[in-house]
């Protein structure tokens, strides 16, 4: 079944734009991504299957366009190793932790029930370097396999693992500092 393209912009334009904007933080880039998504969808509209929703199908195309954008716009998206704020500085010369990761003491269910926590999480994700944020969200939210992300971003598997490691490490430290430390008694 072919989707009805006439109503695409009215029905899905704003939702796709909001999704794109949450990833690229630049309105004109987000608009271009929505445009590319619709035009891309037009090319493959025969592949649309009625059992999936039109929104889900279009969002799937947008997720690919977002990764394409990161590859195009960030020459050498591969991880650089000279960052000072990276996990290597968390360990002594023997590779032992300088400061122990803390026990957060809260379950994911507890945390997800608090809007302020989601805000803190969003702020920490936004503070990631572009390449780490793109790789991390593609992996954890958009559900791309590591192999797909490597192809899309044109990086090696090892490089991707380093990016994801650094993203996770930054996020856990950011949340420790901006959420968990503020909850502890006496903080």
């Amino acid at each position: 079944m072919k989707p009805k393209t006439d109503a695409w912009v009215e029905n899905h334009g704003d939702a796709l734009f909001a999704y794109a904007l949450s990833r690229v933080s630049d309105r004109s880039v987000a608009e271009d991504l929505v445009q590319e998504t619709f035009l891309g969808a037009l090319q493959v509209r025969d592949s649309f299957e009625e059992r999936s929703s039109e929104r889900t199908w279009l969002t799937g195309i947008l997720k690919h366009k977002i990764l394409d954008y990161y590859r195009r716009s960030h020459r050498g998206i591969a991880e650089k190793t000279e960052h000072t704020d990276d996990p290597d500085t968390l360990f002594d010369k023997a590779g032992r932790w300088r400061n122990s990761p803390e026990n957060w003491g809260e379950t994911p269910e507890d945390l997800l029930g608090r809007r302020e926590f989601i805000d803190a999480l969003r702020a920490c994700i936004r503070a990631l370097p572009d390449n780490q944020r793109a790789a991390f969200l593609a992996r954890e939210i958009d559900g791309f396999s590591g192999e797909d992300i490597c192809k899309k971003l044109a990086v090696t598997a090892t490089n991707l693992w380093v990016m994801l490691y650094r993203a996770r490490d930054r996020l856990r430290r950011c949340l420790t500092e901006n959420w968990f430390a503020k909850l502890s008694p006496g903080a």
Binding site: A18, Y19, L21, E31, V34, L121, I125
Partner: peptide
């Protein structure tokens, strides 16, 4: 910590897909 992180990011996927910093998230 990284398991909790993975879990909350996936659990909050829908909320994270909207950026409340942009009130007018419309084309």
């Amino acid at each position: 910590q990284i398991l909790v992180l993975t879990s909350v990011v996936r659990g909050a996927a829908a909320a994270l897909a909207v950026d409340p910093g942009h009130d007018t998230a419309a084309l």
